[in-house]
Amino acid sequence: MKRSGLTEKRILHAALALFVKNGYHGTSINDITKEVGLTKGALYAHFQNKGELLLKIIDEFRIEYIEKMIKTVDAHPGNAIDKLNCAISFSSRFALENPDLCLFLTFLTTELNTDVDFEPALKSVYRDYQKFISELIRDGIRQGLINPGLDPELAALTFMAIHDGVLHQWALNRDRIDGEKYVKTFRFIFVKGLMAQEQEEGGAAS
Protein backbone atom coordinates (compact mmCIF):
# COMPACT_ATOMS: atom_id res chain seq x y z
CA MET A 1 0.00 0.00 0.00
CA LYS A 2 1.31 3.42 -0.91
CA ARG A 3 2.24 5.55 2.09
CA SER A 4 0.57 8.95 2.18
CA GLY A 5 2.20 11.82 4.06
CA LEU A 6 -1.20 13.39 4.59
CA THR A 7 -2.62 10.20 6.09
CA GLU A 8 0.40 9.84 8.37
CA LYS A 9 -0.19 13.37 9.64
CA ARG A 10 -3.85 12.58 10.30
CA ILE A 11 -2.87 9.46 12.24
CA LEU A 12 -0.26 11.35 14.26
CA HIS A 13 -2.67 14.21 14.99
CA ALA A 14 -5.36 11.79 16.20
CA ALA A 15 -2.92 9.73 18.27
CA LEU A 16 -1.48 12.86 19.85
CA ALA A 17 -4.91 14.17 20.88
CA LEU A 18 -5.89 10.79 22.33
CA PHE A 19 -2.58 10.34 24.18
CA VAL A 20 -3.00 13.77 25.80
CA LYS A 21 -6.64 13.07 26.67
CA ASN A 22 -6.44 9.43 27.79
CA GLY A 23 -2.75 8.73 28.33
CA TYR A 24 -0.57 6.43 26.25
CA HIS A 25 -1.64 3.22 27.97
CA GLY A 26 -5.26 4.40 28.02
CA THR A 27 -5.31 4.72 24.23
CA SER A 28 -5.68 1.66 22.00
CA ILE A 29 -4.99 1.17 18.32
CA ASN A 30 -8.75 0.75 17.92
CA ASP A 31 -9.27 4.21 19.44
CA ILE A 32 -6.84 5.72 16.95
CA THR A 33 -8.27 3.96 13.88
CA LYS A 34 -11.78 4.93 14.91
CA GLU A 35 -10.75 8.56 15.32
CA VAL A 36 -9.04 8.67 11.93
CA GLY A 37 -11.55 6.51 10.11
CA LEU A 38 -9.06 3.86 9.00
CA THR A 39 -8.82 0.11 9.29
CA LYS A 40 -6.04 -1.42 11.38
CA GLY A 41 -4.44 -2.64 8.18
CA ALA A 42 -4.35 0.87 6.76
CA LEU A 43 -2.79 2.23 9.95
CA TYR A 44 -0.18 -0.54 10.07
CA ALA A 45 0.81 0.38 6.53
CA HIS A 46 2.11 3.63 8.02
CA PHE A 47 3.19 2.67 11.55
CA GLN A 48 4.20 -0.74 12.88
CA ASN A 49 2.60 -0.25 16.31
CA LYS A 50 1.47 2.28 18.89
CA GLY A 51 5.01 2.63 20.22
CA GLU A 52 6.31 3.79 16.85
CA LEU A 53 3.57 6.42 16.82
CA LEU A 54 4.67 7.70 20.22
CA LEU A 55 8.33 7.87 19.24
CA LYS A 56 7.39 9.78 16.09
CA ILE A 57 5.45 12.31 18.18
CA ILE A 58 8.42 12.73 20.55
CA ASP A 59 10.62 13.40 17.52
CA GLU A 60 8.04 15.87 16.18
CA PHE A 61 8.16 17.71 19.52
CA ARG A 62 11.94 17.91 19.31
CA ILE A 63 11.86 19.33 15.78
CA GLU A 64 8.91 21.69 16.10
CA TYR A 65 9.54 22.95 19.63
CA ILE A 66 13.11 22.43 20.86
CA GLU A 67 14.98 22.88 17.57
CA LYS A 68 12.84 25.79 16.35
CA MET A 69 13.04 27.51 19.74
CA ILE A 70 16.83 27.24 19.71
CA LYS A 71 17.01 28.62 16.18
CA THR A 72 14.64 31.50 17.02
CA VAL A 73 16.43 32.43 20.25
CA ASP A 74 19.91 32.19 18.71
CA ALA A 75 18.83 34.64 16.00
CA HIS A 76 17.30 37.05 18.52
CA PRO A 77 19.48 40.12 19.24
CA GLY A 78 20.38 41.21 22.73
CA ASN A 79 21.81 39.81 25.94
CA ALA A 80 21.00 36.61 27.80
CA ILE A 81 17.94 38.10 29.52
CA ASP A 82 16.60 39.25 26.14
CA LYS A 83 17.09 35.74 24.81
CA LEU A 84 15.41 34.12 27.81
CA ASN A 85 12.46 36.41 27.28
CA CYS A 86 12.45 35.36 23.63
CA ALA A 87 12.38 31.69 24.71
CA ILE A 88 9.37 32.40 26.94
CA SER A 89 7.60 34.26 24.13
CA PHE A 90 8.30 31.41 21.71
CA SER A 91 6.96 28.88 24.21
CA SER A 92 3.75 30.84 24.80
CA ARG A 93 3.10 31.19 21.06
CA PHE A 94 3.83 27.51 20.52
CA ALA A 95 1.38 26.54 23.28
CA LEU A 96 -1.38 28.60 21.70
CA GLU A 97 -0.75 27.25 18.19
CA ASN A 98 0.05 23.63 19.14
CA PRO A 99 -1.73 22.92 22.44
CA ASP A 100 -1.69 19.12 22.23
CA LEU A 101 1.93 18.89 21.11
CA CYS A 102 2.97 21.37 23.80
CA LEU A 103 1.09 19.48 26.54
CA PHE A 104 2.21 16.10 25.26
CA LEU A 105 5.43 15.67 27.26
CA THR A 106 4.04 17.56 30.26
CA PHE A 107 1.15 15.11 30.59
CA LEU A 108 2.88 11.87 29.56
CA THR A 109 6.32 12.10 31.18
CA THR A 110 5.11 10.76 34.54
CA GLU A 111 3.37 7.85 32.84
CA LEU A 112 6.31 6.92 30.63
CA ASN A 113 9.47 7.91 32.51
CA THR A 114 10.12 4.33 33.67
CA ASP A 115 9.19 2.69 30.36
CA VAL A 116 12.36 1.22 28.86
CA ASP A 117 11.00 1.68 25.33
CA PHE A 118 10.46 5.43 25.66
CA GLU A 119 12.56 6.69 28.58
CA PRO A 120 15.72 7.27 26.47
CA ALA A 121 13.84 9.36 23.88
CA LEU A 122 12.08 11.39 26.58
CA LYS A 123 15.28 12.03 28.51
CA SER A 124 17.13 13.00 25.33
CA VAL A 125 14.55 15.69 24.53
CA TYR A 126 14.65 17.08 28.05
CA ARG A 127 18.46 17.03 28.11
CA ASP A 128 18.58 19.12 24.94
CA TYR A 129 16.05 21.52 26.46
CA GLN A 130 17.97 21.80 29.73
CA LYS A 131 21.32 22.24 27.99
CA PHE A 132 20.03 25.15 25.93
CA ILE A 133 18.42 27.00 28.84
CA SER A 134 21.42 26.40 31.11
CA GLU A 135 23.76 27.87 28.46
CA LEU A 136 21.60 31.00 28.29
CA ILE A 137 21.86 31.30 32.06
CA ARG A 138 25.64 30.83 31.95
CA ASP A 139 25.82 33.60 29.36
CA GLY A 140 23.79 35.82 31.67
CA ILE A 141 26.19 35.13 34.55
CA ARG A 142 29.18 35.97 32.34
CA GLN A 143 27.43 39.18 31.30
CA GLY A 144 26.86 40.15 34.93
CA LEU A 145 23.08 40.03 34.50
CA ILE A 146 22.28 36.84 36.39
CA ASN A 147 23.10 35.95 39.98
CA PRO A 148 26.46 34.13 39.88
CA GLY A 149 25.46 32.08 42.92
CA LEU A 150 22.89 30.17 40.86
CA ASP A 151 23.67 26.74 39.45
CA PRO A 152 22.81 27.03 35.72
CA GLU A 153 21.78 23.37 35.47
CA LEU A 154 19.42 23.62 38.44
CA ALA A 155 18.10 26.98 37.25
CA ALA A 156 17.35 25.44 33.85
CA LEU A 157 15.52 22.53 35.48
CA THR A 158 13.55 25.04 37.54
CA PHE A 159 12.62 26.91 34.36
CA MET A 160 11.41 23.66 32.80
CA ALA A 161 9.47 22.67 35.93
CA ILE A 162 7.73 26.04 36.17
CA HIS A 163 7.04 25.99 32.43
CA ASP A 164 5.45 22.52 32.65
CA GLY A 165 3.40 23.58 35.66
CA VAL A 166 2.22 26.71 33.87
CA LEU A 167 1.13 24.58 30.89
CA HIS A 168 -0.67 22.11 33.13
CA GLN A 169 -2.65 24.79 34.95
CA TRP A 170 -3.38 26.60 31.68
CA ALA A 171 -4.84 23.38 30.29
CA LEU A 172 -7.04 22.94 33.37
CA ASN A 173 -8.12 26.57 33.68
CA ARG A 174 -7.85 28.12 30.23
CA ASP A 175 -11.53 29.10 30.31
CA ARG A 176 -10.85 31.55 33.14
CA ILE A 177 -7.18 32.48 32.66
CA ASP A 178 -6.03 35.54 30.75
CA GLY A 179 -3.21 33.93 28.77
CA GLU A 180 -1.28 37.14 28.21
CA LYS A 181 -1.29 38.06 31.90
CA TYR A 182 -0.41 34.48 32.82
CA VAL A 183 2.69 34.52 30.60
CA LYS A 184 3.70 37.94 31.97
CA THR A 185 3.44 36.57 35.51
CA PHE A 186 5.62 33.57 34.63
CA ARG A 187 8.10 35.82 32.87
CA PHE A 188 8.33 38.25 35.81
CA ILE A 189 8.68 35.60 38.51
CA PHE A 190 11.33 33.55 36.73
CA VAL A 191 13.43 36.32 35.16
CA LYS A 192 13.27 38.51 38.27
CA GLY A 193 14.48 35.57 40.35
CA LEU A 194 17.54 35.15 38.12
CA MET A 195 18.71 38.73 38.21
CA ALA A 196 21.98 39.72 39.84
CA GLN A 197 21.44 42.00 42.86
CA GLU A 198 22.92 45.04 41.17
CA GLN A 199 20.57 44.52 38.23
CA GLU A 200 17.58 44.42 40.57
CA GLU A 201 18.72 47.55 42.34
CA GLY A 202 19.32 49.29 39.02
CA GLY A 203 15.88 48.25 37.81
CA ALA A 204 14.27 49.56 40.98
CA ALA A 205 16.07 52.87 40.65
CA SER A 206 15.19 53.35 36.97
Rank of each mutant, 00 (worst) to 15 (best):
L55S: 06
Y182C: 03
G193Q: 04
D100P: 00
K40P: 00
K123I: 14
S92F: 09
S89Q: 13
I137K: 08
T72L: 09
Q130G: 10
E180K: 10
D139G: 10
D151E: 15
E64A: 12
P148V: 12
T39I: 03
L96Y: 06
E60W: 08
L112I: 05
H13G: 05
T27M: 05
H168S: 14
P152T: 11
R142E: 13
M1E: 15
K40H: 05
N113I: 11
L157E: 13
L150S: 09
E200H: 08
N113S: 09
L103E: 02
V125A: 13
L103C: 05
R187P: 00
E60Q: 14
E60S: 10
Y182I: 03
L145M: 15
I11A: 05
N30T: 08
L172F: 05
L38K: 00
L154I: 13
A80Q: 06
D59M: 08
S92M: 07
T158F: 13
N173L: 15
D59F: 08
M1K: 12
G41D: 02
L194W: 02
F186D: 01
R142N: 14
Y24L: 01
T7G: 11
A196L: 03
K123T: 12
P99E: 02
D74F: 09
E201M: 11
K71S: 13
E67S: 09
R127M: 14
L194M: 05
Y24H: 04
N22I: 01
I70H: 07
A42E: 02
D59I: 04
T27C: 06
L54T: 00
E8M: 14
N22G: 03
E201K: 11
T27R: 00
L53K: 00
L167H: 07
V183Q: 07
S28V: 04
G179L: 10
L12V: 05
N22A: 06
L12W: 02
N79L: 08
A15R: 01
T106W: 05
S206I: 12
V166F: 15
